[in-house]
């Protein structure tokens, strides 16, 4: 599998990363090298082997259902680029 310049631009747009034309070629090379490694891994026959889902065979810890977080309105909003009263505000987005 390898990526063409159009695929590189599409992935960049989905990730909201600005990539100019000069960078496309560089990224194409880097990503295709990585995909080359993946292709090598794909050559291994894993029929009948259970997929490994993580580095540790542990399960998720479950917490009790309790409200432990106080009202943090000012703390969270203090990082907002823009606000209006208790709301975050952003440039209008509407369908």
């Amino acid at each position: 599998m390898s990526l063409d310049p159009a695929a590189i631009r599409r992935i960049a747009r989905l990730a909201r990363i600005r990539v100019d034309d000069a960078q496309v070629q560089q990224m194409q090379g880097e990503l295709n090298t990585i995909l080359g490694w993946i292709d090598q891994l794909n050559e291994v026959d894993v029929t009948g082997i259970e997929p490994l889902t993580g580095g540790a065979t542990m399960a998720m810890r479950l917490r009790e259902d309790a409200v432990t977080v106080p009202d943090l309105t000012e703390a969270v909003l203090s990082n907002a680029p823009d606000r209006d009263g208790p709301f975050y505000t952003v440039p209008k987005v509407v369908e």
């Binding site: 917490r63 259902d65 309790a66 409200v67 432990t68 977080v69 009202d71 943090l72 309105t73 703390a75 969270v76 909003l77 990082n79 009263g85 208790p86 709301f87 975050y88």
Partner: peptide, 29 residues
Amino acid sequence: ISKSKLFSGASAEYGAEPNSQVSLVDAAF
């Protein structure tokens, strides 16, 4: 129906003051 959110301890109750039930997880810090 639960007291707190799926992955954070902020209250899941409906109708509170805007942004008063937001943990640092919910705000994606």
